[in-house]
């Protein structure tokens, strides 16, 4: 066959976003009963720069691939950090990966928190459960440029005191970077002297200027809805409340169709979206 006559284009595709890069696990930390943090370095040595709120498609070879938000420091593109909760077969393989293990990484993908646009404003960060992991890069970026922001508050709701994440860092953000940190738990234990209750119950104690506030929310959808409602009640515009959405994702690049929420491709248009864009879609059953 004389293919040269027929073909006009380059038939070899150099880069395919569906093919993973291999990373090696250089360090692990068991954060809670079911959650672990992995430190990963690219085998090819190339950096992986990302925006806070972006995710990668993380693959345990031979087991499967899932979207996982990046939980590391955006200032350090040499190390990829993921905080993974063990909730299924793939996330189990990832959360229990040992130092030296190789994982496949595609990405980073998606639209992040766009923290830079909150410069000059008050920032309220509200996390529920594992939702603190995707928000950590945003907190780190803000802390690195703390003077550029007004009042910065972190509200964090965890299931129990033992299931809190980044417990060594929370006091540091408060003490060294002037972040007002409030943590509440759904259920306490004997060690806990802090508040017990829903994270929305903390909203009333936050100091912010409603017309000049950016609110970043990540957690279960119900928690995000109720939190957004509490800030809307306090006068924050729906567009200034950003939520990080979760839907089934198989490609991460808008091609597989799984993550659609009516007109939105959560992987490409999100995962971080203005609440005004999704509010009406979240109360529609089975959309």
């Amino acid at each position: 066959m004389n293919a040269a006559l027929a073909t006009s284009s380059q038939r070899v595709v150099v880069e395919d976003p569906m093919v993973p890069r291999s990373f090696v696990v250089t360090r692990t930390r068991q954060d809670t009963r079911d959650t672990a943090t992995l430190w990963l370095t690219a085998m090819d040595g190339a950096p992986l720069a990302f925006e806070p709120g972006q995710f990668t498609m993380l693959q345990a070879y031979g087991v499967g691939e899932v979207p996982v938000s990046i939980s590391g420091d955006p200032a350090d593109d040499g190390v990829l950090q993921h905080t993974i909760r063990d909730v299924g077969s793939v996330s189990h393989a990832l959360a229990t990966a040992e130092t030296g293990a190789r994982l496949g990484v595609r990405g980073p993908f998606g639209v992040g928190w766009d923290v830079g646009t909150a410069r000059g404003r008050d920032v309220v960060i509200v996390a529920g459960g594992i939702g603190l992991a995707p928000l950590r890069p945003a907190v780190l970026e803000i802390c690195a440029n703390r003077a550029a922001y007004g009042e910065v508050t972190l509200l964090y709701g965890a299931r129990t005191p033992a299931e809190r994440l980044f417990t060594d860092e929370l006091p540091r953000w408060a003490a060294e970077h002037g972040v007002a940190v409030h943590v509440t738990v759904d259920r306490s234990d004997d060690s806990w002297r802090g508040p017990v209750g829903l994270v929305t119950g903390l909203v009333d104690r936050v100091v912010f200027r409603p017309e000049l506030a950016t609110v970043l929310v990540c957690g279960p959808e119900v928690m995000m809805r109720h939190t957004a409602a509490a800030f809307l009640d306090r006068g924050v515009a729906p567009a200034d409340v950003r939520v990080s959405m979760e839907r089934n994702m198989k490609c991460g690049i808008g091609l597989c169709g799984h993550c659609q929420l009516r007109e939105l491709f959560i992987c490409q248009d999100g995962p971080v979206l203005g609440y005004g864009l999704v509010a009406s879609l979240l109360t529609q059953a089975e959309l």
Binding site: D34, V87, G128, G129, I130, G157, A158, R159, E163, D186, R187, G197, L198, T200, G201, G219, P220, V222, M223, H226
Partner: peptide, 16 residues
Amino acid sequence: QRLHSARVRLLDLYGA
């Protein structure tokens, strides 16, 4: 508010 907090926590949203 307390009822709301109790009801939502009943869902154990952060739980397994």
